[in-house]
Design a binder for these strands. Sequence first.
RNA 1: GCGAAAGUGGCGGAACUUGGUAGACGCGCAGGACUUAGGAUCCUGUGCCGCAAGGCGUGUGGGUUCGAGUCCCACCUUUCGCACCA
Length: 815
Amino acid sequence: MWAERGTHQADLANGASPFYALMMFPYPSAEGLHVGNLFAFTGCDIYARFQRLQGHTVFEPLGYDAFGIHSENFALKVGKHPMELIPSNIANFRRQLDSAGLMVDWTHSLDTTDPAYYKWTQWVFLKLHERGLAYKKAAAVNWCPSDKTVLANEQVEGGRCERCGALVEQRFLEQWFFKISSYAARLLKNLETLDWSETTKQAQRNWIGRSDGARLRFLVLDALADAGSSAVAVTTESRAVATTIEVFTTRPDTIFGATYLVLAPEHPLVDALTTPQQESLVREYRALASKQDLITRKTNKEKTGEFTGSYATNPATGELIPVWIADYVLMEYGTGAIMAVPGHDERDFEFASVFDLPIVRVVAGEGETAKTPLTAPTGVGGKKVPAAYLGDGRLVNSGRFDGMAVTDATRAITAWLTDRHAGEAVTNYRLHDWCISRQRYWGPPIPIIYCDTCGTVPVPEKDLPVVLPNIADFKPDDSGISPLARHEEWYRVPCPQCGNQARRETDVSDTFLDSAWYFLRYPSVPRADVAFDKALTKKWLPVTTYIGGNEHAVLHLLYSRFITMVLKEAGLVDFEEPFTKFRAHGLIIRDGAKMSKSKGNVVNPDDYIREWGADSFRTYLMFLGPFEEGGDFRDAGISGVKRFLDRLWASARDCTSIGEPDAEVMRKLHATIKKVGEDIPALSYNTAIAAMMEYMNTLRRSERTPHKAEVAPVVQLVSPFAPHVAEELWEMLGGQGSVFDARWPAFDPAMLASDTIELVVQVGGKTRGKVIVAKGLTQEQALLAAKGDPSIGKFITGEPRKVILVPDRLLNVVL
RNA sequence: GCGAAAGUGGCGGAACUUGGUAGACGCGCAGGACUUAGGAUCCUGUGCCGCAAGGCGUGUGGGUUCGAGUCCCACCUUUCGCACCA
């Protein structure tokens, strides 16, 4: 009936009070819908249905995120082509989703692997390229030397290839990047304006990773100085070959304690700095470092490194300090070089201890002096061991800055060094540019053509989409480049500018690009002439409420925000934050353990829907626990929810319109309407369901044939949770049209009022019972009533020392 | 290491941005009714100790308060995220 009447279709052009309820679209796996998906969708669906009952025109679209490595790997595993697998997976998902009774408007669905969709994904790439936000550079990828292929980060487990177990290496390939790092400050600042869960915002803040500090310059006096000589002569020749090493530090106040410099092994200055004596050692170390894959390098705790043979001048002390390379310094962060302050940095301390480099104290804490040894108490016996001092304090061994507090010194020293042209204050972000290249098959080809005469040429918009060809050998191989690079007939094209023989980019783009703009597309599906219609976009976006998993709290949400910002700058949309409100749902576990195929505890929604019905299943999922925290799925629990719905059904079937409803029951009903109406928008679905159950218990215990007025509103309250049952009962009770086109029942505050209340009585802070009394009693009256109750009165043995009355709630008698 | 969240019956979880009957609701369990039967339905009970009166109870130890699951201090544990980010 819903399908026939188009109940779930929103009138996008004319609907009043638009409400865009978005859920994160699933990857249509061959295994079918995961119960976690359904948990998320149901939670969003309830919210959306409730908003509709509040009078909004609700748009609840859903599509499929079908590109990417998961699909590709699965296709490889079962020996089928993804182009063949995806449609059947989608059909299966659609069947399952329909059986769950979601209010999805399927006339606006999308599939990221459809050329009609990815045409616009490529168009988004071109928009970024136009604005100079897409660029190419060499970057490290995970390389499996045994499978001879590029691995995605999620295919590397503990530094090894998840398939063959070989140690993963890093390789450098030319890749496309988006300049998201230029937007770091804005992405961070805008977070303050968003109605998102605090945990999600915090995760984004950490990812963006703002650090305020200084960029400092260290002059290398003579790159060719003799490593053995401690007093390097400053000659005019050496000045001529002088190089500057830039470092980033958050502790410029500790510069007097910088006793050496460290560069990342792949730092571009390393060659120039390495002296002939050190050359072979440095080369060896660099080779070793580059062999390590990205992950083990980051988790390897033992400090290793090599001396370059060069010395630089500490701009504060004027002393010569050695320049080292070590893999604990990361090229990706800051300037790829650090000033090492072993006295006040744990990592530097460890490194200095291993290589016997000088450690100087420049900050003294409470009760410490310049001479106090740098130690930290150990756990056992409180014995002191040498360690860096990380705490607050005042400067020592720092010349004119001695005695200054750390915070003041940070400012003062930065200013002093700035005056001397040795550095300046900078803000640094951890966020690095977004690498969107994938040396894979199953994604949208990056719309770029390389021409010998014209260079890098973007594919003209009119030539989009660049269709992904259906090739049989889509498996990545030892060429180390995309499978598309094996298909000359595909990549060989005339240059769009000069017409000469040219070559297509053979990498495809990251799946995260597909999902970074899909919410813009939904309202405009199925229009083929634009990515998104201007009027519809203006009316429906930004998304009113977005619900999804916290696993996407960082990347997906950040990328979507970035793309939206860029489109705003390009004048294509008129907002820069795509999701006004975001809430993350929790995780469903089963019998206390995470669901996994290997444990065999995966819940197949089909089985439960068949056995218990979609409504019971939905309601049970929401009853497990707080929606934002998830819950523990136990088979036994579902029966309680089923019983509740059965009882509601029986009450609706048996209720009568004769006579009057019971006043006490009606009071409870109105309290329930209030509670459910407050709980649903707060996503407290579990307590909303509990409140409805409680009401049904009250109704049942009144032991009369229920009056229609006592039952009908409950049908509406339960409708977001159990839409099928509610729709049927609505009709059974003579409701007009769909229950979802009716309005949410209003509660009457006057109904909640009662003349008498239960007054809790405490004696000396201990609860002794309660008395039923008239409202608005004075302290004396309340005390009298308490004394009058024998089970309470016996505790009031003397003259009260103090009496506290919380009007109409509680009386505490202190003896 | 850094960041975030959380510790409440046999179990999942309630207790409302405000300190005021801890354990709502559901599962499970126990007893009963109906039944040829019950994994159906309905009723009753169910934090712990105690025959009772009563006492004890929200991770541990302190504190504030007439009154603390809730606020403050210290600690312990667990989960999740990020992790050599200078």
